[in-house]
Design a protein around this nucleic acid. Structure first.
Lengths: 233, 233
DNA sequence: GTCTATAAATAGATAGAC
DNA sequence: GTCTATCTATTTATAGAC
């Protein structure tokens, strides 16, 4: 059976090393590709220790996922609660995504894998944590701004347009390096600061709904109650 | 050993069924998670048949990847060669990505998985095929337009901003369905036509480099020869 | 908390008949 | 081209000593 359910934050050192090694292994190989043996070796820990701290490979994976989405969620929530203009919040939101991906390099690959995995490893609680990011962006975009900016951009489409490129940019780095090394092309990508600045400008453009020739997105046959995002009842 | 290297396009029916079943299985489970047994069952074919047609699970996977990137590459190349304005090509490029994802639902998840996989399963030839999409977008954006539109948007960043959301949108559908079913929120996403229209508008906004307050992206400390994308020498 | 040894199941791959 | 039976390696997981 498992040790005390880590109520006090004493990660026992080996537990923390296992989590770190596991997130690296899961990011690089995926849940099925990851080996408990490899995780143990990388954590400089005996394999049996993993089963002492975690009930199973799946439980270990769940812990990695929750840590990840929890950290990302808290980061963006902190931004939403600040007393700054809506546009500034959106810029900070973008910077937060990139900062989180930079600080935890395993975040983007694991996120992309989980999407492809169709949520097979995602229990309800983890799904809820994963949903904090889009829900927070929505609250930022929908919040009354006290004045102008009548045209509110679609929260979900905006989320796709921001998170998609950020995840793609970070997760694609190794493949791009390989393409470059092979001499197919040079696709190193810009420095991080440039990328963030670009994405922030993109975000501002996406928010400019009513300006120029842009007209509000018209919904084609808005069948049933599709694409509404309501808060909990 | 393998049968005749399929010079004439006679997929022998069972071979085609195997490929179809394999792409579904690889998309849903990834290379390591996929089971040759499951592929055989889904293709209504004996497992040994798979090894009659393909040298190994890895070889089968490579074939799936190449078919996929080949189709996507040809589709966008056809657009680049048409005699239409640059902006129209970009809009068509976006529509092509979405159409390809719609026609081959396994394309987005496999693409995302391969990024996360750091190209472990990508041999040089497959990498080359994968690179056709960004290279084609670059040629579209960089081509002389004969006149105005001086500010050329960054090809790689534009690629991230278009492909990222498209892959994200399609690949996230199953997870979004689960979130909706759980009652966490309604994130069905808009109908395909709306999404494409939105992404096309986004593309147009990204191309409007010099307009309004937007200034060309300034590179921060462009260390070494980073982020240049040169054609083959 | 840590380690050795091992059980138990799975899955990729092949031999060989038809 | 197709199928049955099987070999072999890998891998999750656990029992139990220290």
């Amino acid at each position: 059976m498992a040790p005390r359910a880590r109520s006090p934050r004493v990660p026992s050192s080996s537990r923390a090393r296992i989590l770190a090694a596991a997130s690296a292994e899961f990011a690089a190989r995926g849940f099925d590709g990851a080996g408990v043996d490899r995780i143990a070796r990388q954590a400089v820990v005996n394999k049996a220790m993993i089963y002492y701290h975690f009930a199973s490979k799946a439980a270990l994976y769940r812990e990695v996922l929750r840590d990840m989405f929890c950290a990302a969620g808290e980061r963006v929530r902190a931004i939403a609660s600040r007393e700054i203009p809506r546009a500034a919040k959106v810029r900070e939101f973008v910077a937060a995504l990139a900062a989180e991906a930079e600080r935890r390099p395993h975040f983007p690959p694991i996120m992309l894998r989980e999407l492809a995995e169709q949520g097979r490893h995602l229990d309800p609680e983890t799904l809820r944590l994963m949903h904090v990011m889009p829900a927070t962006l929505r609250s930022i975009l929908r919040a009354p701004t006290g004045g102008r900016e009548a045209g509110v951009p679609d929260p979900f489409l905006t989320y796709c347009s921001l998170l998609g490129p950020v995840m793609f940019f970070f997760a694609s780095a190794p493949v791009r390096t390989r393409i470059t090394r092979l001499g197919l092309a040079q696709v190193d990508g810009p420095p991080l600061a440039d990328f963030v600045a670009y994405m922030q400008r993109t975000a501002m453009r996406l928010m400019a709904e009513g300006s120029g020739a842009a007209r509000p997105l018209r919904r084609a046959r808005s069948s049933r109650r599709r694409h509404a995002q309501r808060p909990r009842p």
